Simulated assay, not measured.
Amino acid sequence: MAKRKGLLALLLTTVLLAGSVIPLQAGELEDAINKQKELQKKEEQARSQLNKLTYTADKLQGQIKDLATQISVAKNTLDSTQVAYNQAAEAVSLSEQELEEREEELANRQIVLRQRVREIYEAGQVSYLEIIFEAEDLSDFITRLEYFNRLVTNDQKILTDISIERAKIEEETKLLQVRRDEAAQLKVAAEQAKATLDGKKREHQVALNSNKKAQEDIFEQIERMEADSNDIADKIRKLTANSDVVHGTISTYPLPGYKEVSSSYGWRIHPITKKKSLHTGTDLPAPTGTKVLAAGNGEVIMASWYGAYGNAVIVDHGGGYTTLYGHNSKLAVKVGDKVKAGDVVSYVGSTGWSTGPHLHFEVRLKGETTDPLQFFR
C-alpha cells in the first residue's frame, strides 16, 4: 500500500512538472516573439532615420558637386579677370611712361626754344648792326636773318607736334586707366564670388561630415539591435526545434532557374553598414515577383516583417531544422500553415536591408547557421 502511494505521488509529480514545462516554454517563446517585434519596430525607426540621413547626404553630395563645378567656373573667371587686369595695368603703365617721356621731351624743347628766342631777341636788340656789318652784303644779311626766323618757326612746329602727341597720349592713358579700374572691379567681384562659393562648400562639407557621423551612430545602433534580434531569433528557433513537425529533408532548391549567388554564406563586408559581419545565409538574385519555393516539408512558424530581413518566412522542418526566406515583396503563407517541398511560400523582393531584388535563404540546425547550398550539391 505504501509502495502504491509512493508510486502515485511520483506519477502525480511528474505530471505536474510536465504540465509546468509546457506553459513555461510557451510563455518563454511568446516573450521572445514579443521582444523580437519590439526590436523590429526600433530597427524600422532607426532605418527610417537612416533613410532620411542618406537622402540628405546624397543631396549634400550633389550640392557639393555643383558647388565644385561653380567654383571651377569662378576660378576660371577669376583667372581671366586677373589676366585682363594685369594687361590693363601694364598698358596703363606703358602709356604713363610714354606720356612722361613726351612731357620731358616737350619741356626740353621748350627750354631750347626759349633759349633760342632769347638769343635772337638779344641779337635783334643789341647787335642788328653787327649782323649788317658782318654780312658781306644785303643778301647775306637777309639770309642770316631768315635762317634765325626759320629756326624759331621749326622749333615752334616741333613744340606744337609734341603738345598734340602728348594730349593724345594723355587721353589714351585716361581711357586705359578706366579699363584698368573696370578690370580691377571685375577681379574683386570674381574674388568675392569664389570666396562665397568656397564658404558654402565648406559649410556643406561640415554638414555632410556631421551627417556621416550620425549615420555611423545609427549603424552601430542597428548592428546592436540586429545582434540582439539574431540572438532572439536563435532562441525562437531553439524553442521550436523540438516541435512535433514531421521531419522532412531539405532538398528542394527555393529558386529554380536562378543559380547565381551574389553573396555567399560566411564572413563579408556588409553592403549597407560597410562593416565585417557574418552573412548567415546565401543571396540569390532574381526578378521581383519570382516564386520562392519551400525547401522541404514543414510548418510556417513566422510570416511577417522581420527587421533587416524585411518580409520573411520561417519554416520549421522538424529535427531542429528551419529555413528562412527573406526580403520578399509578398508572402504566400501564414503562421501555422503546413507546407510541402516545392510549395510557394513567398515572392522575391527587396524589402528590409536590401540593395536589390534577391532571396536571402538561410538554413539553421537548432538555431545555428549553416551553409544552405550544401544541401543542393
Rank of each mutant, 00 (worst) to 15 (best):
L17Y: 13
T14W: 12
W305E: 00
L129N: 11
E182C: 07
L94S: 12
L186R: 06
A193T: 13
N311R: 05
Q82D: 15
A89T: 07
A74W: 10
K194D: 06
P254T: 03
E216A: 07
E203T: 07
E134A: 10
Q49F: 06
K276S: 02
L373N: 06
Y347N: 02
T160K: 11
L176F: 02
A9D: 04
I250M: 03
R116L: 06
H270A: 07
A214G: 07
G289R: 12
I158R: 07
H270C: 13
K213A: 14
I272M: 04
L50K: 00
A214P: 05
R377M: 13
A332D: 03
L359A: 03
I314T: 02
S243F: 07
H317P: 03
K334P: 09
P357E: 08
D140Y: 00
W267H: 11
V339P: 14
Q45M: 11
R144W: 00
K41D: 14
L176T: 06
S304T: 01
V345E: 04
A18Y: 15
V245P: 02
G318V: 11
A207I: 05
D58G: 08
A123L: 12
G349W: 00
E171F: 10
G62D: 15
T351L: 04
H247V: 03
Y147G: 11
A189N: 11
K291R: 11
E260F: 02
M225H: 01
A332V: 09
N211D: 00
A193I: 06
D155R: 00
G336W: 12
E226P: 04
E98G: 08
T143N: 03
Y55V: 08
T290Y: 03
L255Y: 02
V335E: 12
R364P: 02
P254M: 04
K330H: 12
F375Q: 08
A195L: 01
Y258P: 01
H317C: 09
S48F: 14
E368Q: 13
I236C: 01
Q110R: 09
K340Q: 15
T143R: 00
M225G: 08
V188H: 11
E362W: 03
A32E: 14
A189H: 11
A107P: 12
G319C: 05
Y258T: 00
E30W: 09
K201P: 04
E96M: 14
A303S: 02
Y258A: 01
T56I: 14
F141L: 10
V117G: 09
E122K: 11
S210I: 07
V21M: 12
Y321F: 09
N242C: 00
G6L: 05
K238D: 03
G298P: 02
F219Y: 05
T273D: 09
K213F: 11
K291A: 07
Q40M: 07
N211S: 11
G266V: 13
I169L: 10
Q87T: 12
L255M: 10
K42S: 15
Q97H: 11
H270D: 15
V152H: 05
T282A: 05
D371A: 02
G318A: 10
N76F: 15
E43W: 04
T240Q: 04
P256W: 04
L255H: 05
E105V: 08
